[in-house]
Design a protein around this nucleic acid. Structure first.
Lengths: 163, 163
DNA sequence: TTGCGAATGTTATAATGTTGCAAACCTAGC
DNA sequence: GCTAGGTTTGCAACATTATAACATTCGCAA
């Protein structure tokens, strides 16, 4: 099983977070853009679990920490993080999740468990190729792909079968 | 080129609408569910073009026709139409589009032109298979697939190149 | 140290979607 | 016909998600 399956297995999540933050710092430095305190904190909050977080969830967290935040604060931070490939927006949930493949050029494919809410980000060449082929057949120029699969993750599936 | 490419080509759109309505009537009769006046009118409005329509756009249309409508009216009609496979919701646009493959079991793949706004619905076995394979590899049970590709349709691409 | 662009604060508002309850309406069975 | 029950709609209020516009502050460089 690949490392990408982490969300659905017990794991030391702290390393997910610290890896993501380290990645982010490096990427921002390379691009010469500023990973400000707010942006970094938002990224960290998003990474607190593998369940996507809504903008207003982030906002509430910030507020509870005494941060004087309004919606634009959060949306701006999220825009920045998205722009630099550090988080993804899950359109079907209106929520955000940490990018598990920073740096790599990838077509994020998201497996979203409707029971536990965890999201697994995959990259799959066959999927990506098939989509591009289908688009090519219609002479359509692909710029962005939203691929979100909802269903049941292995753990929740197993639980369900035990009942 | 297949008939599915219609949205991006000139065509007699009235037949799209009347075909969709005829389809809908038949499907509802077969399922023994009621395609009420409101539901039918909403479906017709959605089909007025190949550009997805927001719920509040539909609402505005209904209101302008003197229909005494509130948001729930529209959302309920849309829920019904979705439930019976007559329209699709495009998550990345918060909008709705007529289903071009009623009846067929299909993984809707949507090509959304960011320039003209038209949407083409495709069914592609390879794409569908690749997605299921990728999910299977993670022991994930697929229930629903959201696949929305944004970019430029052939017509807008051609126009752009002329400039 | 001052000037400039980037980032944030602040207020208000827009856009999208839902809840809950009451009234109207079909339709099956008498 | 009529009436009982479920389905559909009307309606008011509200919840959630996202953006606009403008003032202020911050960080860096000339």
């Amino acid at each position: 099983m690949s490392a990408s399956a982490l969300p659905y297995r017990p794991h030391n999540h702290d390393t997910c977070v610290s890896d993501a933050l380290a990645d982010a710092r490096e990427i921002c430095q390379q691009k010469n853009v500023r990973l400000t305190a707010t942006r970094e904190r938002v990224l960290e909050l998003i990474w607190q679990s593998h369940k996507p977080l809504g903008a207003y969830d982030v906002l509430a967290e910030l507020a509870s920490e005494g941060h004087n935040a309004a919606p634009p604060t959060v949306y701006r931070a999220l825009d920045f993080l998205q722009q630099h490939g550090l988080v993804h927006r899950i359109a079907s949930l209106n929520a955000f999740t940490g990018c598990a493949h920073t740096g790599e050029k990838h077509t994020g494919m998201f497996l979203i468990c409707r029971a536990c809410g965890n999201v697994l980000e995959l990259t799959d060449t066959h999927v990506s190729t098939a989509i591009h082929n289908a688009a090519d057949a219609e002479a359509f120029r692909v710029e962005n792909i939203t691929l979100e699969v909802s269903g049941l993750c292995p753990r929740c599936l197993a639980e369900k079968n035990h009942e």
